[in-house]
Design a protein around this nucleic acid. Structure first.
Length: 635
RNA sequence: GCCCGAGUGGCGGAACGGUAGACGCAGGGGAUUCAAAAUCCUCCGCCCUAGCGGGUGUGUGAGUUCGAAUCUCACCUCGGGCACCA
C-alpha cells in the first residue's frame, strides 16, 4: 500500500545542470537538463528536448522540417497506447552543446518524441550505454554509446541491450569522475551530485512526478465549483455569504450531457464583483473532493464552519478505515493530502496529520454480466434477477454472458440482498454474507446456501426452544464439556471479529451449535451455553440473538450485555492427542496427559505399536518430542 | 516491460514450521413417514484394497529442515496497479 503510494508520487533525486550551446537561437545559450543518473555524465552522447520544449517551439516557427516533425509528434501524442508503440524518433536541430567537464567535447541536440515536457526540465542528456531508450535512439541515429561502468564479473561492452543494474549493485566505473572506482550506483550518484555542486556545474534536485489532479468533471453529481464567469470581469469567485452554491433539484436526465448546462435559472446569475449578468461554472467537483474530508466533517455535522475544533480534537483519528484496494492510491492518498492541509489551516488537530490509524483492505464482490444488443448494435445490460438460464425472463431472448467483474451500476451486474431478506429475513442475510469468504478476498456472488443458513439459524432457535425439555441436571462431565466448548467459542469468535475473519467466527459458532446439540448436559449448563451463544452471535444476527438470550434466561438486552470473557482454565484439555510421525510421516497417535513431561511422552511413544514395528528391535536414530504438539521418530 | 497480491477437494474456505482439508455448501447412503416436506444419523481429496491397511496429494521444479500449504530460489497461471518519468 505505502509502496503503491510511493510509486504514484514518484519521488526521485537527481542533478539539474545546464549545457552551454553553440549555434542556438538568441536566448537559448543554455539548455537545462535533469538526470537521476549524474554518475553517467561521461557516457553522454547527445542532448534531447521535448517537442513541447521552448527551444522546439522556437525552432518550429523558423524551420519547416522541425515544424513537420513536431506536428507529427503531437498527432500521435494523444493516445497513451500509440505513444507506447511509437518508435523512438528525433530530429537533429543542428545545435551543439559543450560537455560541462570538457569544452572541446561537443554533442548534437535533438528534438525527440519520447521526452516529456512535464517532467524535469523537458530536456535530457542521453546516456545510451545505461538506458535502453537512449540506446535505441543512439543506434538509430548512429551516435556513440560509451560504457560508463561494467559488471564486476562480466565486464562486456554494451551492444544491443543497455546495461542497467539495480542502483544497489556494485559495479566498476571505467568512465567515472567522482567517488570510488568500484561502488554502487547509489553511492556514485551521491558522489556525482556532490562533485558537481562543488564545481558549480549544477545542483541536486528532488523531483516529484506530477499527475492529473484536476478536480472538475462535466457532470451533475458533485459539488458545484463556486466560480462565476463574467463577460466583464472574467473568472470571479462567488462571495462567501453566497456559499455553498447548491445544485438545483429540478433537473432532468432525458437528454445526454450535463443538465446544469441547460438549466437557465441556475446557470444564469449575477457577477459577484460588478453585478452584471454572468453564468455559473457548470463543471462540478469530482466526488473524491468530498470523500477526502467527510470523516472530519462527520465529527461535527451541524457546525457552521467546516469543522468544530473541539469536536475534531475529541473524535479524530479515524480508528479503522475499511475500503477496497482501488482506493489505495486515490482516495487514501487524497485524504492524507487533505488532512495535512486541514491541519495547517487549523481545522484539524496536529495528531490528524495522518488521519487513519488502521486500514483494512476488503475484497470486491463480483458477478457475471448479462448483455444483449439493441437494434443499433449497442450493448444493453440486464440485472441478474431478470435473467434465467441464459435467457431474459421477459422476452426469452438469449443473453451474452461476460465473465465476472466488480459490481457496477452501469453494467447492471449488481445483486440486492433484498431477495434473501424477503425470503429468510435480515438475520439470515447478514449471517450468510459473513459466513464463508474472508472479507479481504474478492468473491463471486452467489445466493446458493442462503437457505442452508436459514436452516441453521432455525436449528439454533429450536435448541433454545427445547431448553425446557432438557433434564434438570446432567452429569458433571457433560456439563464441563459443554462449558469448555462455550469458552472455546468465546475465544475463537472474539479473535475472528478482532482480525476481521468473520468467516472463522461463524465457523466457531457452528461448532458450538453442534456441541450443544450433541451434549448431554443439564438445563443450567445448556442455558449458560445458549446465553454465551446469544452474546457471540449478536453482532451478526441481532434479532435472533435477543430471542435466544431471553429464552435462555438472560436479563435485559443482549446488545447491552458486556462481551463475554473466555476463562483460560476452560481452554485447556486434560489429555492431548499427539500425532506420531515416523520419518516425518504420520503413522499413529497417542493420548497423553496435558502436563506429561518429555520423558513420559517418549516412553509412551516408544511403546506404540506402529513405532515398535518401525524400529524392528533397533534404537531410533533420533527422537523429536515437541510437548503438546508432535512426536517424530527417525529410524 | 516494471511493481504488488494470490494459486489448497466438486464449490466457499481452515491450518503459531508440527495430524492438510476445521466449518459450511453441494453430493451419496440410512432412519422417521402411507408418501412427501421438515428433522435426525452417517459417509464424502484422489488411487489401490473385500477388509485391515497402504500409496499419493496444497500451481510446477529444486532447496533448507527430524518435519514445509507455511521458509528460500527459479518458473507457470490468474488478478490488480503503473507504464517512454530522464
Amino acid at each position: 500500500m505505502r509502496l503503491m503510494q510511493r510509486n504514484w508520487i514518484g519521488r526521485s533525486r537527481g542533478l539539474q545542470f545546464a549545457f552551454s550551446t553553440s549555434g542556438a537561437p538568441e536566448g537559448f545559450d543554455r539548455i537545462e537538463v535533469y538526470t537521476t543518473r549524474p554518475d553517467t555524465l561521461m557516457g553522454a552522447s547527445f542532448v534531447a528536448v521535448s517537442p513541447d520544449h521552448p527551444l522546439a517551439r522556437h525552432l518550429e516557427r523558423h524551420d519547416e522540417n522541425v515544424a513537420g516533425f513536431v506536428a507529427e509528434c503531437r498527432r500521435i501524442g494523444t493516445s497513451e497506447e500509440a505513444l507506447e508503440k511509437a518508435e523512438k524518433k528525433g530530429i537533429d536541430t543542428g545545435i551543439r552543446v559543450r560537455h560541462p567537464f570538457d569544452e572541446a567535447w561537443e554533442m548534437p541536440v535533438y528534438i525527440a518524441n519520447f521526452i516529456l515536457m512535464d517532467y524535469g526540465t523537458g530536456a535530457i542528456f542521453g546516456c545510451p550505454a545505461h538506458d535502453q531508450r537512449d540506446l535505441d535512439f543512439a543506434r538509430k541515429y548512429g551516435l556513440p554509446h560509451p560504457d560508463v561502468f561494467v559488471a564486476l564479473d562480466a565486464p562486456e561492452p554494451v551492444e544491443a541491450t543497455a546495461f542497467v543494474p539495480p542502483k544497489t549493485e556494485a559495479v566498476r566505473y571505467v568512465r567515472g569522475f567522482a567517488g570510488e572506482e568500484v561502488q554502487t550506483g547509489e553511492a556514485a550518484i551521491d558522489a556525482a551530485i556532490a562533485f558537481c555542486e562543488e564545481n558549480s556545474v549544477g545542483h541536486g534536485v528532488t523531483q516529484y512526478r506530477l499527475r492529473d489532479w484536476g478536480i472538475s468533471r462535466q457532470r451533475y453529481w458533485g459539488c458545484p465549483i463556486p466560480v462565476v464567469h463574467c463577460p466583464a470581469c472574467g473568472v470571479v469567485p462567488e462571495n462567501k455569504e453566497n456559499l455553498p452554491v447548491e445544485l438545483p433539484m429540478d433537473v432532468s436526465f432525458d437528454t445526454p450531457g450535463n443538465p446544469l448546462e441547460r438549466h437557465p435559472t441556475w446557470k444564469n446569475c449575477t457577477c459577484p464583483r460588478c453585478g452584471g449578468a454572468a453564468t455559473r461554472e457548470t463543471d462540478t467537483m469530482d466526488t473524491f473532493v468530498d470523500s477526502s474530508w467527510y470523516f472530519a466533517r462527520f465529527t461535527a455535522p451541524r457546525a457552521t464552519t467546516p469543522t468544530d475544533r473541539a469536536e475534531a480534537d475529541y473524535w479524530m483519528n479515524v480508528d479503522q478505515y475499511i475500503g477496497g484496494i482501488e482506493h489505495a492510491i486515490l482516495h487514501l492518498l487524497y485524504s492524507r493530502f487533505f488532512a495535512r492541509a486541514m491541519v495547517q489551516t487549523g481545522h484539524l488537530p496536529d495528531s490528524a496529520k495522518e488521519p487513519f490509524d488502521a486500514l483494512f483492505t476488503q475484497g470486491m464482490v463480483t458477478h457475471e454480466i448479462y448483455m444483449t444488443r439493441d437494434g443499433r448494435g449497442r450493448p444493453v445490460y440486464h440485472l441478474p434477477e431478470d435473467v434465467e438460464e441464459g435467457k431474459l425472463r421477459t422476452t426469452g431472448e438469449a443473453v451474452t454472458i461476460i465473465p465476472s467483474a466488480k459490481m457496477s451500476k452501469s453494467k447492471k451486474n449488481v445483486v440486492d440482498p433484498v431477495n434473501i431478506i424477503g425470503a429468510f429475513g435480515a438475520d439470515t442475510a447478514r449471517w450468510f454474507v459473513l459466513s464463508d469468504s474472508p472479507p479481504e478476498r474478492d468473491v463471486e456472488w452467489t445466493s446458493a446456501g442462503a437457505e442452508a443458513t436459514y436452516r441453521h439459524l432455525s436449528r439454533v432457535w429450536r435448541l433454545a426452544d427445547e431448553l425446557a425439555q432438557a433434564p434438570e441436571a446432567g452429569s458433571a462431565g457433560e456439563d464441563l464439556a459443554l462449558q469448555k466448548a462455550a469458552h472455546r467459542a468465546i475465544a475463537e469468535v472474539t479473535r475472528g471479529i478482532e482480525t476481521f475473519t468473520f468467516n472463522k467466527s461463524v465457523a466457531a459458532l457452528y461448532a458450538l451449535t453442534n456441541a450443544l446439540q450433541k451434549s448431554g448436559a443439564g438445563r443450567a449448563a445448556r442455558a449458560e451455553a445458549l446465553r454465551i451463544m446469544a452474546q457471540l452471535m449478536a453482532p451478526m444476527v441481532p434479532h435472533l440473538a435477543e430471542e435466544v438470550w431471553q429464552m435462555a434466561g438472560g436479563s435485559g438486552l443482549v446488545a447491552a450485555a458486556p462481551w463475554p470473557q473466555a476463562d483460560p482454565a476452560l481452554l485447556v484439555e486434560d489429555t492431548v492427542t499427539l500425532p506420531i510421525q515416523i520419518n516425518g510421516k504420520r503413522r499413529s497417535e497417542i493420548s497423553v496427559p496435558r502436563d506429561a513431561g518429555k520423558d513420559e511422552v517418549e516412553r509412551i511413544a516408544l511403546a506404540d505399536d506402529a513405532v515398535i514395528r518401525a524400529l524392528a528391535g533397533g534404537a531410533p536414530k533420533k527422537l523429536i518430542v515437541v510437548p503438546g504438539r508432535i512426536v517424530n521418530v527417525v529410524v
